[in-house]
Design a binder for these strands. Structure first.
Lengths: 249, 249
DNA sequence: TCCGGCATAAGTGTCGACATTATTAGCTGC
DNA sequence: GCAGCTAATAATGTCGACACTTATGCCGGA
């Protein structure tokens, strides 16, 4: 963590973080840029669970005072990426398997709702644009391109949220999604996960096209459940990979 | 708003706000106390939608500097109680019917999930304690005691969340609940709402006792839907009652 | 060699001040 | 009397400082 931060959003994630960090926060304010940088560092794994986030160092890094840094850290705490205990140094949040299970349970229920909403009031054009997202997904799957598939999947989920037209739902799902980014990327790299996920998404798209709300909801729920199962199965490996700092050398 | 604040939590809401404002925030920190006071003022209607929340006045009121006030306002913004636009005075959040619909849609789905979780892994003792909550609810209903019913209902929902054992779910539901406190109290005062709600809750309890997950989920979903319908029907009246500040004299 | 207690260093929460930006009041012209 | 502009007032975002708390490293004793 010696390199100096570029406070300019570049990657595809910028939009994701922007939604979650509050719609106002996009790029302009200092707090937003700091939160964005730290948040991305966490999601991308440059900062690992348990790492200290002391506001003095960070303020030096960003050449600002501690006030905006503190506010940024509080934002990220609300998103579950950072843990703040009074009078102690903030640190990158640690995962427990229990929390992960809870989050995936929630995501399952919320995506089911999303599917119902989509079938209920998305236009045919909307479904068509979702199909286009799926094409990208599918081609990445055929190339066995995990990174490509991952980002295509993010885009697919975004497109689904657009069709829901429920701002509150979007905010919550985005927040949960953000917290599990690392896990999701990891789980896709497990053997045969990618094919299975792709197949499920194809089934889901078919259900959307057929306007079968119950089936779409059930499929979406199942997609999330399966992802959870994959993560549970690989939890030990994962814990070492993402590396809770305390267990690292 | 001329009376000086008592920064000591007294009412039954204290626990509710505490959960939502972050578990650490309970009572101790200055930020927490300020957020709690402002939050309660909003929920209880002493501060009305659109009211200015300028940090100078508030810091005078709480005899603190603006820093903790700002942090408290940011907390409340995340909970949807306050709107903050850069370089503009924060104000009490305005409702739109669209947002209310979205929130109730979400609550419906989440309570359905909660019911499934409860049936899935609550002990018989847990169900029994839920029955005791229901007794309070029922007796308030028989007395036509809207306030009593309202708070009994809050307690009932709390008890349900306890049984779910899903911290993430609880946090989200509590947050959504907080935002709609005023609406829910109002909707219960509509004619025949109270009886209907009570009846629904009894049916729900029966389903819990029968361990019928699908029925419980459907009933809980329906309870929320009905509340929404009641609110939609009375929206005009409600808007005047709660009073978006701009339309008030 | 390792453990517990103490002094020092580092970090947090809060404060009051400042430059910058919004809002308001007053004034001009129609 | 009212719209449009300008000056003055007020509020914001950020800063650096301070008191107090927590972490760090050092020391003697087993």
């Amino acid at each position: 963590m010696d390199n100096y931060p570029e406070l300019v959003p570049t990657s595809e994630e910028s939009s994701l973080l922007a939604t979650v960090l509050g719609d106002r926060a996009t790029g302009s304010s200092l707090v937003a840029r700091i939160a964005d940088w730290i948040g991305r560092a966490i999601v991308e794994g440059r900062l690992r669970p348990g790492d200290d986030l002391n506001s003095v160092d960070l303020s030096k890094r960003f050449q600002s005072s501690r006030t905006p840094v503190r506010e940024a850290l509080m934002l990220l705490e609300r998103e579950g990426l950072v843990e703040i205990t009074p009078r102690r140094r903030p640190r990158v949040a640690l995962f427990t398997l229990k929390e992960v299970r809870e989050i995936y349970q929630l995501r399952a229920a919320l995506y089911a709702l999303a599917s119902e909403l989509i079938v209920g009031h998305a236009s045919d054009d909307g479904i068509a644009s979702l199909w286009r997202c799926y094409e990208t997904l599918d081609s990445a799957a055929e190339r066995d391109d995990v990174d490509g598939y991952f980002w295509a999947n993010v885009a697919f989920r975004d497109a689904e949220m657009d069709l829901c037209e429920n701002t509150q739902l979007r905010r919550i799902i985005d927040s949960l999604r953000l917290r599990t980014m690392q896990l999701r990327h990891f789980s896709l790299s497990l053997p045969r996960r990618l094919e299975r996920s792709n197949l499920d998404h194809r089934r889901l798209m078919q259900a959307y096209s057929d306007r079968d709300a119950a089936l779409a909801a059930a499929l979406n729920r199942s997609i999330v459940s399966e992802a959870l199962h994959a993560i549970e199965a690989a939890w030990g490996q994962l814990e070492r990979g993402i590396g809770h700092q305390e267990t690292a050398p």
